[in-house]
C-alpha cells in the first residue's frame, strides 16, 4: 500500500519536469523561461522526494531527502533572482504581446 502511494507520487512528479523542459524550449523570452524552469522543476522534484520519503526506511533518510529539496529550492531561487537581475541590467526587455 505504502509502496503504491509512494510510486504514485514519484510518477506524478515526472510531468512537472517534462513541462519545465517544454517551457524552456517553447516560451518566448528569458524571464518566462526562468519562471517555467524554476517553478515546474521544484514542484516536480518535490513530488518525487515526497514519494521517495513515503517509502523511506528510516527517519534519517526522510530528513536527508527533505534537506535535498530545501537546498534545491534555495539554489534555484537564488540563481533565478540573480539571472533575472543581470538580464534586466543588460537591458533585455521582457516579452509583451505587442512586440511579439
Amino acid at each position: 500500500m505504502i509502496d503504491i502511494v509512494g510510486t504514485f507520487f514519484v510518477i506524478l512528479g515526472i510531468p512537472f519536469f517534462l513541462s519545465g523542459t517544454i517551457g524552456l524550449l517553447r516560451l518566448p523570452d528569458i524571464y518566462t523561461r526562468l519562471h517555467a524552469l524554476t517553478k515546474a522543476d521544484n514542484v516536480g522534484l518535490g513530488f518525487i522526494i515526497l514519494g521517495l520519503a513515503i517509502q523511506a526506511t528510516s527517519w534519517f533518510e526522510v530528513a536527508k531527502l527533505f534537506l535535498i529539496w530545501f537546498l534545491v529550492l534555495l539554489a534555484s531561487a537564488t540563481s533565478c533572482h540573480l539571472v533575472a537581475d543581470a538580464a534586466l541590467r543588460h537591458n533585455i526587455k521582457p516579452w509583451t504581446k505587442e512586440r511579439a
Partner: peptide
Amino acid sequence: PTAADRMMAAQLFGTCGVAILLL
C-alpha cells in the same frame, strides 16, 4: 539566443540530475 538562456539550461540539468540520482 542570450548567454543567460544557456546558463539556465545548465541549471535545469542540475535539478534534473538530482532527480535522476534519487531515482
